[in-house]
């Protein structure tokens, strides 16, 4: 730097001397700020560890919840909650419906539509029904037939049916009812007996399940 005589802008600073009280006060301020800083930094490590643990646990829990949300084998589907279509009012409507449904590829009557009809969300999902129809057979039986919402006027034992019996196959099952004669389904229906027939013939059983039944 330039000397005083070389630079006319140079000014001598005023004399400011410290006293012990000032030193003590500044030192106390520094100590207080240091303690605060150390305390603030000391919180960072356990807080970061806690955040990592909670985040990892939450991620694992969410992953497991997503994985297990698609399969719950202990849920039983009441047969009444899988309604297919409104009941035909008379024999003529029933015959028309049966003739349409027996046509291969008839829209709106596929197994997918069957399995997805679960408005109460108490039953099994569509994918579960489509993947394991045999379990549905076990869940449907006298208890399902005697469900109070079905009217229950037909005794389940009055017409023992086997899954392979074509006479019990309900009309309108799409490709799974190709062998069903339309005349059988077109028989003047007993409206009160329709739920039981539906319950016993609902599952689109694969050949192995039919043989086992």
């Amino acid at each position: 730097m330039n000397h005083r005589h070389d630079n006319p802008l140079r000014l001598d600073p005023p004399v400011r001397r410290s006293d012990p009280a000032l030193g003590e006060r500044l030192a106390l301020l520094a100590l207080a700020s240091t303690r605060t800083s150390v305390r603030r930094r000391a919180w960072r490590a356990p807080l970061a560890g806690l955040a990592i643990v909670v985040g990892t646990g939450g991620l694992a829990y969410g992953t497991q919840a997503v994985v297990h949300s698609h399969h719950n084998p202990r849920v039983v589907v009441p047969g009444s909650e899988l309604s297919l279509a409104p009941l035909p009012s008379d024999a003529a409507d029933a015959s028309d419906e049966a003739s349409i449904a027996s046509t291969p590829g008839a829209p709106g009557r596929s197994q997918t539509a069957l399995a997805g009809a679960d408005p109460t969300e108490h039953g099994r999902s569509a994918s579960a029904l489509a993947s394991a129809p045999g379990q549905l057979v076990r869940t449907l039986g006298p208890s399902a037939i005697a469900h109070p919402t079905q009217g229950g006027t037909v005794a389940p034992s009055s017409r023992p049916s086997s899954p392979g019996d074509p006479s019990t196959a309900a009309p309108g099952r799409g490709k799974h009812t190709k062998g069903t004669k339309p005349t059988t389904a077109a028989t003047p229906a007993r409206p009160t007996a329709r739920p039981s027939a539906r319950a016993t013939t609902r599952p689109s059983l694969p050949p192995t399940a039919q043989g086992a039944g």
Binding site: S18, P20, G23, E24, L26, A27, L28, A30, L31, T34
Partner: peptide, 13 residues
């Protein structure tokens, strides 16, 4: 001064 020494603060001042 960071450790709270009054003499250091006086020297800096």
């Amino acid at each position: 001064a960071r450790e709270g020494d009054p003499a250091a603060w006086r020297a800096l001042y």
